[in-house]
Amino acid sequence: MGRNGVFRQLFVLTMRQALGRRRAVIAVLAGAIPVLVAVIYRLVSGEDPQGWSADLLNGIVVTTLLPLVALIFGTSVLGGEIEDGTIVYLLVRPVPRREIVAAKILVAATTTTVIVGVSAAVALLVSLPGSAGYGLVVASVVGIAWGALIYATIAVVLSLFTTHALIVGLIYVYLWEGVIAGLFAGTRLASVHQYVLGVAAALDPIQPSALPAHLSLAGSVGLGALVAGAATVLAVWRLAGFEVAERP
């Protein structure tokens, strides 16, 4: 029973926490919405499928669903244990803190990728039938996985610093990425949304220009890795010095 055994325990435990609760059901229902819209689109119109599919991807999946699901899971994988007090059971064991952080981030990123990725893939296959769709499906799922990892890492580190992690993360997503990045082009460098679009647009073989991406593939990968890496280091450092809440 080596190091991988402990990591696997933490991963399985966190997965059961993440999927055992109501929020998993809600997240799956939310994931059904892009599919519903795609079905309506196919029934009513079907015009300009590539342009509309890009709108679908950017308009609801990448701007709203992905950050929302990633932040909800990301702030709860560790934040829920802190709130409930069960974090103590992990901390009083001879387990390297980096394994706890890594397991928590990976569970949040995996569940987000599965829920949002499947949602995007099914919706795109409906709205963009035929081989044209496959390229965009692959590109968008890879982009979503990349974004899920970065958002989840940010969410985990936020949950170690504040009990209001979810609202702080949502303020970042909807004010910074949603409003400010639309007004001031320079802030797009610090927008996870743009890292997702950069990866997805670069990998889409058909119509890379349909997505409003402003960063190259290298930029999206490099900046995203920088953000995720820094957040992970910060989270491990913070957990190593974590103090249980004594006073309410």
Binding site: G5, V6, L13, Q17, D84, T86, R93, V95
Partner: peptide, 22 residues
């Protein structure tokens, strides 16, 4: 503090603790 992983059984919790204790 009365905190527990409510979704685990008592045995699973003990087993988890044993594994985390390596």
């Amino acid at each position: 503090r009365d905190a527990a992983y409510g979704f685990l059984t008592g045995r699973e919790f003990a087993l988890l603790s044993a594994r985390l204790a390596r």
